[in-house]
Design a binder for these strands. Structure first.
Lengths: 221, 221
DNA sequence: TATATCTTACTGACCGGTCAGTTACTTAAA
DNA sequence: TTTAAGTAACTGACCGGTCAGTAAGATATA
């Protein structure tokens, strides 16, 4: 009798997929860094989740730090660009634009994977000056300017208060990002849970009241 | 000639100060954890800053994790209690109470040492379920209820909108905490810096507009 | 079409540094 | 003299980063 080893069609233990690897590694890194934070995250875990060995990580990324930076960049920049594109092409009242922009921002940042990134960046900034610089310029500043442009439109059209403070374009994203983090991370222990939609409506309700020239009561949209 | 070594009055190399040590260690831990985050922080550094050796830490705290938890507890709970005491004893319009409470909260959380703690907690929650539970119950929930009670007073007196959303008592602290963190950590690289006072006025301006029944334009106080 | 040759994506054992926690000893001070 | 506060050398687990070796699979040749 012939032994059963060596089946007729041999399955390779791994495949060469140099084009797919970087994205897969970034996706794995997003999960592991998001769950563990930078310092606790083990590259061994990132590798396992990406379906490769630890050595392979180093074929595509110089170091743990580089991997972290590239992951943040790859995940965040497209969102900001999408927001800018939306505002650039929007036709209509500033109020509606603001409402829709806030909805889209909320839809982006309320997902745990995204909330993890904003939290990560916030907590690791101090250790990665280069990342901090990049994040501040390409995310915070661009986001702030984007929102300010929407507010400016509304002021020009008389929809928003002429005496808006410079803080307005910061307060909104601050409230949104932190609300998203709280929704994600305290979800399990909150006895007075709000749904994501309730939070969104609450944000819009407060902020519109805060900026509109002639606020009216009642539902937002 | 007599050699100069061994002066007549010998200074002890160290003193036994069992009552003072814990607080000194907590203070050192606040700085080091605040600067480095939990995982990067070295107990060696905490010990050096506290003026003791590493072994001494273990005379007063079971582990790195315990030290971290105790530090957060010791620094945060008094602030919450102070806010509660202030609201409990306040006589006057709800609007003034709200303004003054926000001022005091801002005065507390805008300091880097405090902003570091809120950031720390946010980023380490996942790794310390016990701390998360404690923080949520003793800080977030208590803070939320405190603010809600102020809002309720205003609604009852007709100063605030009767249709306030449940989100209102969360949005304000979210905006404040995140604004404080941003003020602290991006201070160096922001080309459009606002002063702490400008941020406070901006927060009050937005939020009062958002909650008042008959908002009026103009400066806050 | 078959197979020999070659390139390179990929593996995984290993090394060296780091650091939380321990312990054997020292010393302040009651 | 006693004892508890404090020290500092030590241990062992852990993990980022390396590199010698392996095998997938492309290409050349018959």
């Amino acid at each position: 009798m012939v032994p059963a080893r060596r089946p007729t069609v041999r399955q390779p233990r791994w495949h060469r997929r140099p084009n797919a690897r970087p994205e897969e590694i970034l996706a794995a890194a997003q999960v592991v860094f998001g769950e563990q934070g930078f310092a606790r995250a083990k590259l061994e875990d990132v590798a396992r989740r990406a379906g490769v060995s630890k050595g392979t990580l180093y074929l595509y990324f110089d170091s743990k730090e580089t991997l972290f930076r590239e992951m943040v960049r790859a995940r965040i920049v497209p969102s900001v660009a999408a927001g800018e594109e939306f505002v650039r092409t929007y036709q209509g009242p500033a109020r509606d634009l603001l409402v829709e922009l806030v909805r889209r921002m909320w839809d982006t940042i309320r997902h745990p994977a995204m909330a993890s990134i904003t939290r990560l960046v916030q907590s690791e900034l101090h250790n990665f000056p280069e990342l901090a610089r990049f994040y501040f310029d390409e995310v915070i500043l661009r986001g702030r300017r984007l929102l300010q442009s929407v507010l400016d439109r509304g002021v020009a059209s008389g929809e928003f208060r002429a005496d808006l403070q410079r803080f307005a374009c910061r307060g909104l994203p601050h409230m949104m990002v932190f609300s998203a983090q709280t929704q994600c991370f305290f979800h399990a222990m909150d006895p007075e849970l709000l749904t994501d939609d309730q939070v969104l409506e609450g944000i819009l309700d407060l902020f519109l009241r805060g900026v509109e020239a002639r606020p009216v009561a009642g539902p937002v949209s």
